Simulated assay, not measured.
Amino acid sequence: MILADKIIEERKKNGWSQEELASKLGVSRQAVSKWESSGSIPDLQRILQMSELFGVTTDYLLKDEIEEEPLNEYVETKTIKVSMEEANQYLDMKSRGSRIVANATSLCILSPVPLIVLGTMTEDHALVAFSLVFLLILVAIAVYLFVNYGIRDASMQHLEKEIFETEYDVSGMVRERRNQYESAYIRNIAIGVVLCILSVIPTIMTGVMEADDSISGISVGILLVIVSIGVNILIRAGMIKSSYDTLLQEGEYTKEEKHWKKKTDAFSGAYWCLIVALYLGWSFWTNNWKFTWIIWPVAGGLYAAVLGMVKMTIDGREK
C-alpha cells in the first residue's frame, strides 16, 4: 500500500473529511487532496504530524511493505480513561439531570394552557394578557433550567462525544445497574407512551359532541397536561437508560454513532431552533394555540427522515 492510500485509509478510519484533516495539520484541503491522489508528497514535518494523529509509526507511513503498528506513546497519552469514581459521578449527574430536563420540558408544554383555555372562554383582554405573561414566565423558567443543567453537564460531555476506555470493573458495575433498572425503564416507557396516546381522547370527545369553543379549549388544555406528564416520564426513563449506554458505548453511543453525532450536531440544533421559531410565529400570528401544537409530532416524525438525508449527503462528500 502506498502513502496516498494509507492517508486515505487512516483519515476515513478516524472519521475525518479532507477539510478536517487539513485543519489538524495546518494545511489546505487542496494539499491533502494532492497527497491522496499522489499528486504530491507531504514533507517530513507533516509525516510526523500524521504519525501522531493516526497513532501509527512513521515507518508504516513511508514504507510500503510494513503493516500498520500502533504508536504506543500516542495511545497512552491520548486515550480517555474513565474511573469508577467518574462513572458513578456521571450516572448520578444524569439521574438528577433527568428530573431537571423532564420538568423543564413539561413547563414548555404546559405554558400555553392558560392562554388556550382563557382565550376560548373569555374575551377579557386583561385575562388573555395575564395568560400570555404566564406563558412567558414558564418558558423563561424552563430555559433557566435547561441552561443551568447544560453548564453542569458540560464537564461530562466528552463521554458522549469521544471514544474512551473504562478502568477495571467499571463496565461490570454499569451493566449490573442497567440490568437492575431494565424493568423500571420498560414500565416507564410503556406508561409514557400510553399517556401520550390517551391524551387525544378529550379532543376527540369534544369533536364528536360538537362542543362549543370553551369546552374545546379546556379539552386541549387537558390534552397538553396529559402529554406533559407522559413526556416527563419518557424523558426521565430515556436519560437514565442513555447514561448506561454512554458508559458502555452501546446503542446510540457506539463509536460509529459518535462519529455521525459530531457531524450532525449543528444540523440538529438548527433544526429544532427553526421548529421552535415556526411554532411560536405560527401560534402568535393565528392565535390558534389549540391547533398549532400539531407542529411538534410532525417535526418529530420528519426529523429522522431529514437526518438520514443529511448523513447520506455527508457520506457522499467524504467519498
Results as ranks from 00 to 15, higher is better:
186 I>K: 11
102 A>H: 09
81 K>S: 15
147 V>T: 11
141 I>M: 01
74 Y>T: 03
53 L>Y: 05
236 R>Y: 05
205 M>E: 15
76 E>F: 08
199 S>F: 11
9 E>D: 13
192 G>F: 04
51 S>K: 05
215 I>G: 14
147 V>Y: 12
253 Y>T: 02
318 E>P: 11
225 V>N: 01
133 V>H: 07
92 D>E: 10
10 E>M: 08
246 T>R: 08
51 S>D: 08
293 W>E: 02
140 A>Y: 03
252 E>Y: 10
34 K>A: 01
113 V>A: 00
150 G>C: 07
271 Y>S: 07
109 I>Q: 08
23 S>A: 07
203 T>P: 01
25 L>A: 03
149 Y>W: 12
41 I>N: 14
292 T>F: 01
14 N>L: 15
242 S>R: 12
152 R>P: 03
297 P>A: 05
60 Y>M: 05
72 N>D: 14
79 T>K: 13
81 K>Y: 14
249 Q>W: 07
226 I>E: 04
275 I>P: 07
223 L>K: 10
313 T>D: 14
210 E>K: 15
318 E>Y: 09
278 L>F: 04
295 I>M: 02
8 I>P: 03
139 V>A: 05
256 E>C: 06
92 D>R: 11
52 E>A: 06
303 Y>M: 04
219 S>W: 04
318 E>V: 14
31 A>L: 07
12 K>W: 09
68 E>F: 05
8 I>L: 10
142 A>N: 02
120 T>V: 03
18 Q>C: 00
303 Y>I: 01
234 L>T: 05
40 S>K: 13
201 I>Q: 06
289 W>G: 03
78 K>P: 04
154 A>N: 13
209 M>G: 01
89 Q>P: 02
102 A>T: 05
261 K>P: 11
101 V>R: 12
125 H>Y: 15
171 S>P: 04
242 S>A: 14
155 S>I: 12
121 M>D: 03
121 M>R: 08
288 N>H: 06
317 R>P: 00
66 I>Q: 13
13 K>S: 13
81 K>W: 15
56 V>L: 01
72 N>V: 08
181 Y>I: 00
130 F>I: 04
183 S>R: 15
31 A>P: 14
159 L>N: 02
232 N>W: 08
184 A>T: 11
11 R>K: 06
181 Y>W: 04
133 V>W: 10
104 A>K: 01
230 G>E: 02
77 T>Q: 12
139 V>R: 07
97 G>E: 07
210 E>T: 13
54 F>G: 10
86 E>K: 13
78 K>W: 04
297 P>M: 01
274 L>E: 06
63 K>G: 05
17 S>L: 07
48 L>D: 14
157 Q>K: 15
229 I>V: 15
162 E>N: 15
312 M>T: 03
105 T>W: 09
251 G>V: 01
21 L>P: 02
236 R>M: 12
41 I>K: 13
247 L>Q: 00
232 N>L: 12
100 I>S: 05
161 K>I: 13
211 A>E: 15
253 Y>L: 03
10 E>D: 04
76 E>S: 12
